[in-house]
Every structure is written in structure tokens, then in C-alpha cells.
């Protein structure tokens, strides 16, 4: 269905603008370059994952494991870089090796989820609930309950991946923007996106229309795994460490962002730019609570929860109007 500008389409956008106005009214630093960069850069991790999640949910799937997967990927990346440092030395080759490991581990983790779901035919919820526990437990075990830290000199070297940028725009923001643009084009204008929507609407119809249903579904999980890998590459330079609590609840934030953005939770309709709006709404709420002293920041989760429920109520109205 063409994305017409209706009330339900504009809802999330209007909420985003309202939040921006509210933030600007409450604190003059809200619109400062430093704060905007901070909010966007922190949104980038969840945002990239949420773009991948949009495809998974649109095709009728779900992935609860992405937060744990990010922790696992981060752990592997740090482990690999620390192990290779004596032979490669501090420098670009080691950084590239670390990036390669992160992307590869992300891809394999996504592949594992996807194969279990499409080949073994197990419910996505069950599979990823299982791998969610497995990934996180593995990181905790490898870190022996503590923290895996990148060697200090290497941490200095890759720091600019998070903190640097060009023309005053930091790398995470640039990477996020690229992922969003590609995601939007793929969803709206390519066969892959159309097939995701078709499978999510009715996988039987898709099968009878010569769509390779399992392959498309597998690809959505692999792509999500890859994006978790990318997100982790940007995340590790920020702190230079990983632990059992890295990426905690990211899966919920990513899924919430997708739903707030107007993608149907039961699949069949996906909106990548809506997901971006959803991510920004969620991070702005936290940011405004921190900047303004109106409400305790500890209530961040409660306010996000209200927004999520509201978004679904709006969606329900829309679908009941369509399903006449």
C-alpha cells in the first residue's frame, strides 16, 4: 500500500516534533550541536539494529536475541583483537581484523537464528528466546562474570570510530544514515522488500506466487545479524569493553521503535523511516528527562512504555478502519 500521509502516518512524526519542541522549551542546551550529536550517535546502535528488525518483523518474524547478540559480538571482537595484538601490533590491520571478526560473528549468529527458524521450522519467538539466553550467557562465561576490556593502546586507536567524523558529523550518525537510506530503498523499491511484505501478509499466497519464502526469511535474519555486527563495531570504541550486561534490553528498544514507527507487529507492512522516528522518540524521551528536572529519569521506562502502548492503539484503529 502506498504510504499516504494520513493521521496514523503522521502520528509518530507529530510526536517527534512535539518532543523536540518540548525539549527546546525546557532546556536551551537541547538544540545545541553537542546534545544533538550525542542523541543521534547514541541512537545509532539501536537504530541500525531496528532497521534490520523492521525487515524481520515485516516478514512475520521476530528476533529477541539482538541485545545479547551485540554483547556476544562485542566480546568476540575484543577477545580477537587482544589475541591478535601481539602479532599484528596496534594499528589499522588490527582494527580491520576486529571489524571483520565482529561482522563475521554477527552474520553467523543471524544465520544460526535464521536456519533454526526456516529449516527446523521452530517459532521465531522460541528460537530467539533461546539464543538470547545462549549469547548472553556465553559472554558472561568468557568474561568470567566480569568485563572484557580492550587493551588500552588499541582503545585509543579505535576511539575515533565512535568519537570522530567528517564535517562535524560523527561516524555513527553517518553510518546510521547510510543504513536508513539503503533500508528505505530496499523496503520500498526492491523485490526483497516487496517479498517481505508479501510473506508477512500471507505466506501461503507468497508461496503460491513463486516467492522463495524460506530464503527471504533467512535473509532477513542474516541481514539483522550483519547490522548487529556493524552496530557493535561502532559501539565497542565508545567504552572499549564488553560484559554480561552489554546491550541489555536493546531487543526491546529495537522492537518498540519498529512498532512505534508504524510497522505492523504481525507483519505485512513495514516502514523504515517510521522506525527511525521511533528510535528518535525513544532516545529523546531519555534525553529530555535527563536535561529537565521535571520528572525523575528513573521513570524513563514508564514513559517509553506508555508511548509504545499508545502507538499500538493507534495502529489498531488504523487496521480496523482498513479491514472493513
Amino acid at each position: 500500500m502506498r504510504d499516504r500521509l494520513t493521521l496514523s502516518t503522521l502520528g509518530p512524526l507529530a510526536a517527534l516534533f512535539a518532543l523536540i519542541l518540548l525539549g527546546a522549551g525546557l532546556n536551551e542546551n537541547f538544540l545545541s550541536a553537542a546534545n544533538v550529536t550525542n542523541v543521534l550517535a547514541r541512537s545509532a546502535f539501536i537504530g541500525m539494529i531496528a532497521v534490520g528488525m523492521t525487515f524481520v518483523i515485516t516478514s512475520g518474524g521476530l528476533d529477541l536475541s539482538v541485545g545479547s547478540m551485540a554483547a556476544f559480538v562485542a566480546g568476540m571482537m575484543i577477545l580477537a583483537m587482544n589475541a591478535l595484538q601481539p602479532s599484528l601490533g596496534v594499528g589499522l590491520p588490527l582494527a580491520l581484523a576486529g571489524i571483520g571478526v565482529a561482522i563475521l560473528v554477527g552474520l553467523l549468529a543471524g544465520l544460526a537464528n535464521g536456519l533454526l527458524i526456516t529449516r527446523a521450522g521452530i517459532e521465531p519467538f522460541i528460537v530467539t528466546l533461546g539464543t538470547m539466553g545462549i549469547f548472553r550467557s556465553l559472554v558472561t562465561w568468557i568474561a568470567d562474570g566480569g568485563t572484557l576490556s580492550l587493551d588500552f593502546s588499541m582503545r585509543e586507536f579505535i576511539g575515533p570510530i565512535y568519537y570522530g567524523g567528517i564535517l562535524g558529523v560523527s561516524w555513527p550518525i553517518i553510518a546510521f544514515a547510510v543504513v536508513v537510506v539503503i533500508g528505505e530503498v530496499v523496503m520500498r523499491h526492491t523485490r526483497f522488500g516487496r517479498y517481505c511484505e508479501a510473506i508477512g501478509s500471507n505466506d501461503k499466497v507468497a508461496r503460491y506466487s513463486a516467492v522463495k519464502v524460506e530464503r527471504i526469511q533467512l535473509l532477513t535474519y542474516v541481514a539483522l545479524g550483519l547490522l548487529v555486527g556493524f552496530a557493535t563495531v561502532l559501539y565497542v570504541p565508545r567504552l572499549g569493553s564488553a560484559s554480561g550486561s552489554t546491550g541489555l534490553l536493546w531487543e526491546l528498544e529495537a522492537i518498540a521503535a519498529v512498532i512505534i514507527g508504524g510497522t505492523a507487529l504481525k507483519g505485512g507492512f513495514g516502514r523504515v523511516w517510521g522506525t527511525v522516528v521511533g528510535v528518535l522518540i525513544l532516545s529523546l524521551i531519555g534525553n529530555i528527562l535527563n536535561l529537565a528536572n521535571l520528572v525523575s529519569p528513573y521513570l524513563n521506562g514508564a514513559i517509553q512504555g506508555v508511548i509504545i502502548v499508545l502507538a499500538v492503539v493507534l495502529q489498531r484503529r488504523k487496521s480496523s478502519a482498513e479491514g472493513r
Partner: peptide
């Protein structure tokens, strides 16, 4: 249940 995506438009169904 097997022929058409009922929530999608004519165009999307035609070319699927």
C-alpha cells in the same frame, strides 16, 4: 488464502 494478499493493493498483487 492462497491467491491474493487481501491487505495489499491491486498493483502489488498483480505483479507479485
Amino acid at each position: 488464502e492462497r491467491g491474493l494478499l487481501l491487505t495489499k493493493t491491486l498493483r502489488e498483487n498483480l505483479t507479485l
